[in-house]
Amino acid sequence: MGQDLQAELKAFEPQHDFFVGIDSDGCAFNSMEVKHNDSFSVNLIKYFGLAAISRQVHQVWDFVNLYSKTRGINRFKAIILAFDFLSQMPKVKRAGVQIPDLPYLREWTETETKLGNPALDQIIKNATGARLEELSKIMEWSLDVNKTISEIVYNLPPFPYVCQSLQKLEGQADMIVVSATPYEALKREWDEHNISQYVALIAGQEMGSKAEHLAISAKGKYAVDQIIMIGDSPGDLKAAQSINALFFPVNPGYEEESWQQFLDQGIDKFLGSTYKGAYQDQLITRFDALLPEDPPWCLG
C-alpha cells in the first residue's frame, strides 16, 4: 500500500454515479464471534496474565465488541474500554487481579486515527522505558491475534444474499470495503470466497477510521443521497452520518434477513433515490434498539 497508507483512497475515482461502502466482520461475514472468542480475548488473557478472571474477561470483551453500542470498535480502543470495565467489576477486585491502566496506549489512541500495527510500530521505534514496554506488549498481543485468526478463520463464507447483492450492484455502483479489520485479513477472506472481484478497493484499519475511508473516497465525489454505508455497528452508522451518507443496517442476530431485505428492497430504493426518509428511518430505529449501552453486570 506504499508509505502513504491512504494513497489508494485518495486516488480513488468514481466509475459510476453510486457508491457503496461495505463493512466486513459481522456484516458481510459471520466472523465476529469466532475472532473475538477464539483469538482476541484468549490472547488478552495470555499476554496480560488474566487467567484468574478468564470468565470476566470473555464477558467484558464480548460486551464491548459484540453485544453493545461499541460493537465493531477498533481493537486498541477495545482493550482500554474492556480494562476500564474489568477494573470496576467486584469479582475482579475480590480476585486481587491488577488491571493495567495503559496510559501510553490511551495517549496514542486519542491522537492517531490510523489505529493499526504499522502506525503503532512507528511509535514503538521511538519509545523508551515504560512506554516501550507497554506498547511492545500491545503489539505482541495484536500480532498474535492476527496470527491466530489466520490459522482458524477459513472456510467461513459470506452471509446468505451477500454475493447476490454484490452481483446486483455490479455495473451500477462503485463498491469498497470499509473496515476496522487489518488489510491482510480482509484481503484473504474476500479473496477466499471470490468476492473481492466486486469491490474497487479494500480499506482496513491501516488506512484510518471508517469515517476517513468514506470521507476520502466518496465525499464530494458523489451526491450525498447516492452514497450508502452497509454496516452492523453504531460506529458504521456514525461513519455514514459523518458525511451525510445513507445507511443500511445489517442487524446483529438477523444478518440473513437484513441482507435479503437489502437485496429485495434496499438496492432498488437506493438506486431509485427513494431510500432516504421513512424507509431508512424505520431501519435505523430498529437497529438502534438491538444493542444496549449499559453492561448487564453490576458495577457497584
Rank of each mutant, 00 (worst) to 15 (best):
P182Y: 07
G96M: 01
Y254Q: 13
L120T: 08
I138T: 06
F48D: 00
E134H: 03
L263M: 05
D121M: 08
A185V: 13
L115D: 04
I80G: 04
I267S: 05
V97T: 09
P14D: 06
F287M: 04
P118R: 10
V178L: 05
C27G: 03
A51C: 01
A278W: 01
S165K: 01
S41A: 10
F85I: 07
Y183R: 12
N155Y: 01
A82G: 11
E8G: 02
A289R: 12
K168I: 12
S39F: 03
E13H: 13
L135F: 02
P90L: 11
A239R: 04
M139R: 15
M89H: 10
G96F: 03
T274C: 03
L214S: 08
V92P: 01
I79T: 08
D236C: 02
Y67C: 04
S165C: 04
E184A: 12
D225K: 14
F248M: 04
A185I: 15
I216T: 14
T285K: 15
N194G: 01
E192A: 14
Q260I: 04
G253K: 02
Y67R: 13
V153L: 10
E293H: 12
F12W: 11
S217T: 14
R286S: 09
Y67P: 00
D38H: 05
H213T: 04
